[in-house]
Amino acid sequence: MFHRILVEEWQRVLTTISFGIFLVTFGIIALRTWRMPRESIRRLENLPLENDTNDHE
């Protein structure tokens, strides 16, 4: 009977664990992204704008 009985006890902590997992992942990614060098960002964001012969038509 792992459904609705034993597992109901989980409900209180599950939401917190989920939030914790997301917060850690999000935090790490946000930190890494924030620390990306500005020149690297500039170069990357302009990659799609480099034209080929099709774009001159």
């Binding site: 992942t25 999000f26 990614i29 890494r32």
Partner: peptide, 23 residues
């Protein structure tokens, strides 16, 4: 890729796109 091409300018925030992807 195509929206910056059509608009003729880079994506608003590359940093945000990275956070968007991983999240």
């Amino acid at each position: 890729y195509f929206l910056p091409k059509a608009a003729g300018r880079p994506v608003y925030s590359y940093r945000l796109s990275v956070v968007h992807f991983w999240s």
